[in-house]
Design a protein around this nucleic acid. Structure first.
Length: 461
RNA sequence: GUGGCUGUAGCUCAACUGGUUAGAGCGCCAGACUGUGGAUCUGGAGGUUGGCGGUUCAAGUCCGCUCAGCCACCCCA
């Protein structure tokens, strides 16, 4: 039994898993770049003030704090142990983006489309599909209030998931301010809106009676809870168009603008390559920084979402001033408009494993040069150079010895071909390529080795 | 963060109600044989029973703490 292990919720990745992860990230990145999103990055740590009170919701409680150091720490301890930390690990990629935009605004285009793939950290108890360190893949557009942005980040995310082999997914769409109005329309006051969101969010997993019980426990009146749940039940079966009418009746004038936005998003979004886009008036999301449309992708039979996002106008301004920017004359939120969508990489990968969506096992290299004896080593290394120059990934076994263990290692690493650097054969100029799966040898002139393998591997168009 | 379940060789597991030097299969290593691999034979290494402490004449088996995994809650990617 290993005495040491990574901390709870943190993981090591063996070469095989690492290859898979890198390959998936590469595919997602390619899709993002095909949309014109630009890559960028921010540090793992931010100054604490960047995170505090910026709408991270519950996640702010789950931050990994970094303690002050040296004299600063001493001073804080002497003051009674208050404010012991001054930095924290990022818990998402959105709040740091707002800080980043603030810092570099002058150097960035007026409309900034970016993608970022990187780890975030949350101090929760680890569970199936939940880790303390996990990768998120975000696309965001800053500087445009157009619903075109919503359509585009939804399309980009759906395309990325399609590229990984997903289909039949549902992207649920709602609006944070609309949900707010809807919840209030049942007579639920400001102080209970958050609790109502949490309850609402559970409706697809927990029976309504349970949710009602919870709502009551949180101080929501019997009448309000009953009305809310009755409405929810009634809308369960409605089609999108009717749903909008139902919600419209309850939210009236104030809700009209948000409904119009959602209809616009639906109208603007092309057919999605990995699923469909639907309006769900009860979709709620944890982050408080959302100010407009919100969206989420769930997969059936899995108790967690694969991706989530929404519009967060004004977050950039809030980072700087600590308060929400003044709303525009027409009631829309002021400040820098922004909207993004985040893929939960770990959950996507977990689901792919459960569904067996990995179509091809990746290989560590294309070919292994087998070194049967020390006097063949120099030629073997040279052969490796030649194969690499020809565009192959060539692994030269790092120790001369019996071929058998070398073949076995190659097979373990998923390497499909081996070339035995036999001194006699090297002299003759024709070597044998061994297909490790079939164990068939094929003699091929040294100069044509790479071409032969590339042909077999489909690397020649 | 709260609560529950689990933790024995690299892997999968065994060891009656606490009782002698903790076992098996697979894997691994060496040798024989082969002589560019999945066979066979022989032999071998490897465990402070996650860690620390306690109860007991005696603990893998009981208790406490701790670490890790899983599950529920909380919440979420």
């Amino acid at each position: 039994m290993a005495k040491l292990s990574a901390p709870s919720g943190f993981r090591d990745f063996l070469p095989d898993a690492f290859r898979k992860r890198a390959e998936l990230m590469r595919r997602i990145r390619e899709v993002y770049e095909s949309f014109g999103f630009e890559g960028m990055d921010t540090p793992a740590l931010e100054n604490l003030q960047v995170f505090l009170g910026k709408g991270g919701g519950e996640n702010e409680k789950l931050m990994f704090h970094v303690m002050k150091r040296g004299a600063d720490l001493q001073r804080s301890l002497e003051k009674g142990g208050q404010e012991l930390s001054d930095m924290a690990l990022r818990f998402d990629l959105t709040v740091p983006l707002a800080r980043y935009y603030n810092t570099h605004r002058a150097e960035l285009p007026a409309v900034f489309k970016r993608y970022q793939i990187g780890p975030v950290w949350r101090a929760e108890r680890a569970q199936h599909g939940r880790f303390r360190e996990f990768i998120q893949c975000d696309v965001d557009v800053l500087g445009s209030a157009s619903m075109q942005v919503e359509a585009e980040v939804i399309l980009a995310t759906s395309t990325a998931l399609a590229k990984l082999g997903f289909s039949g997914l549902t992207v649920r769409l709602n609006s944070r301010p609309l949900l707010n109005l809807l919840v209030r329309s049942f007579g639920i006051g400001d102080e209970h809106v958050a609790a109502a969101f949490v309850g609402i969010d559970k409706l697809d997993k927990v029976p309504p009676e349970e949710v009602k019980k919870e709502l009551l426990e949180k101080g929501i009146s019997e009448a309000a809870a009953a009305a809310l749940l009755a409405f929810s039940a009634a809308t369960k079966t409605s089609a999108s168009a009717a749903l909008f009418d139902d919600v419209s009746k309850r939210t009236g004038e104030a809700g009209a603008r948000h409904i119009a936005q959602l209809k616009e998003v639906l109208a603007l979004t092309p057919e999605l390559p990995s699923g469909k886009l639907v309006f769900d008036p009860f979709l709620a999301r944890g982050m408080d920084y959302y100010t407009g449309p919100i969206f989420e992708i769930a997969s059936e039979g899995v108790p967690f979402s694969l991706a989530g996002g929404g519009r967060f106008d004004g977050l950039v301004d809030k980072i700087a001033s600590g308060k929400d920017p003044a709303p525009l004359p027409d009631g829309r939120p002021g400040g820098v408009p922004a909207c993004g969508f985040s893929i939960g990489f770990e959950r996507v990968l977990l689901l792919m494993e459960e569904k067996g969506l990995f179509e091809t096992a990746s290989r560590a290299a294309d070919v292994l040069v087998v070194v049967p004896s020390a006097d063949a080593a120099a030629e073997a290394l040279k052969l490796g150079v030649e194969l690499r120059a020809a565009g192959l990934r060539a692994d030269v076994y790092p120790n001369a010895g019996k071929p058998v263990p070398q073949y076995e290692l190659a097979q373990k690493k998923g390497i499909p071909y081996a070339i035995l650097a036999d001194p006699e054969k090297l002299k003759s100029g024709t070597l044998e390529i061994r297909d490790l799966a079939t164990r068939q040898n094929t003699p091929v002139p040294r100069a044509e080795l790479a071409q032969w393998i590339k042909g077999k591997l489909g690397m020649i168009p």
